[in-house]
């Protein structure tokens, strides 16, 4: 099944959600909690993350969209980006890099 990644606030996390990326919490440079990608969250996990001051998680959600719907969603995101970047010269390296990076993020 096709999935897509979503980054959500911890307050939005629920048990049975599947981690889309490894979760690592470090304090003073020392990892004190970690879960692998693909791990199914439990109530206890969510409490453990909160106890260690985690604020967000990356989850994998089922992507039921067709290819055409994905392409349409990306086109809409790009159109909005074009408006947001309408005041600047997109040939400048930093601007071009930011635009490309945000578009890549919208594609996931």
């Amino acid at each position: 099944m096709k999935t897509r990644l979503r980054y959500i606030a911890l307050s939005e996390a629920e048990e049975e959600m599947v981690l889309g990326a490894p979760l690592t919490i470090a304090e003073h440079g020392v990892t004190n909690f970690s879960l692998p990608a693909g791990h199914v969250l439990t109530e206890q996990n969510i409490r453990q993350i909160a106890l260690r001051h985690g604020e967000f998680v990356c989850i994998a959600v089922a992507d039921t969209r067709s290819d055409a719907e994905c392409a349409e969603a990306l086109a809409q995101a790009q159109a909005r980006l074009d408006v947001i970047f309408s005041l600047v010269d997109r040939h400048r390296p930093a601007i071009a890099g930011l635009y490309k990076a945000v578009l890549a993020y919208r594609s996931i």
Partner: peptide
Amino acid sequence: DLNFLFGKIEARTRY
């Protein structure tokens, strides 16, 4: 790959 950075910023802002 800045997806994680952007995702973290988006989720933490909402929080």
